[in-house]
Design a protein around this nucleic acid. Structure first.
Lengths: 114, 114
DNA sequence: CTTCTTCATCGTTGTTTACCGATACGGTAC
DNA sequence: GTACCGTATCGGTAAACAACGATGAAGAAG
């Protein structure tokens, strides 16, 4: 039983649009592979969907939604963060995660290019 | 120096169109994760691109294109085959690999749904 | 200050992956 | 039949991954 403040934070409005990066040649293979690898785990897909649903971002409420230890969820979030698909903004003691639309768009473009 | 017959085989015309499978709910998470996992390796992305370029399918010419042992390439092909993204049709002594458009479409749809 | 909360990080364990060489298997050719 | 070609599979090794509990660090609250 824990009372939990609802996270009302919205994500910073996104810095810029510019991301249609250089090519889609050889380096793009690695890029696509890395992104796919990050998404290549059911829990991480679930997290992404969670973050997308609450169009704003949530914090460790994610932990409550999943049947996993807090440390495990933290690890998955780290993977997603390192892939660039997710950003974590510190809000006092808690952290507000949200999807990084630029990277997600890039990901879709790369997959679409297959 | 090996003479290599060019593989002139084209892939069987695809059995049906019907694949817009049921939902995109919880089971879709696993499906997407599995597909991403299969694509989540640079070599496998490269293989997919190879198969896409030669719009028809090639055989173990793939091995020649990659700096990897034949057994390693075979493994990667197995992963892709098991994911459903690629099909391998036996042609006498050799095997003709090609992309399975249905699964690829499904993959794109799932990613697009993010 | 101390305490509590939220999250990240560390250390461990068991499982999976990626790669290789060697071997086995199924066809074709001889 | 034997020999050869193209692939798949087996066995092994080293690295990466997924999960956990325990510990640690940064803020808020008392």
């Amino acid at each position: 039983m824990k009372k939990r403040r609802v996270a009302v934070l919205s994500c910073p409005p996104e810095d810029a649009a510019a991301d249609l990066r250089p090519i889609e040649g050889s380096g793009a293979d690695d890029e696509l592979a890395a992104l796919c690898k990050a998404v290549g785990h059911p829990v991480r897909v679930q997290i992404l969907r969670l973050l997308a649903r609450k169009n704003a971002c949530i914090c460790g409420d994610i932990v409550d939604e999943l049947p996993l230890a807090q440390s495990t969820v933290s690890q998955h979030l780290k993977v997603l963060k390192e892939s660039g698909l997710v950003r974590g903004d510190v809000d006092g003691p808690r952290v507000c995660y949200c999807i990084e639309p630029r990277t997600l768009r890039r990901f879709k473009a790369l997959v679409g290019g297959l």
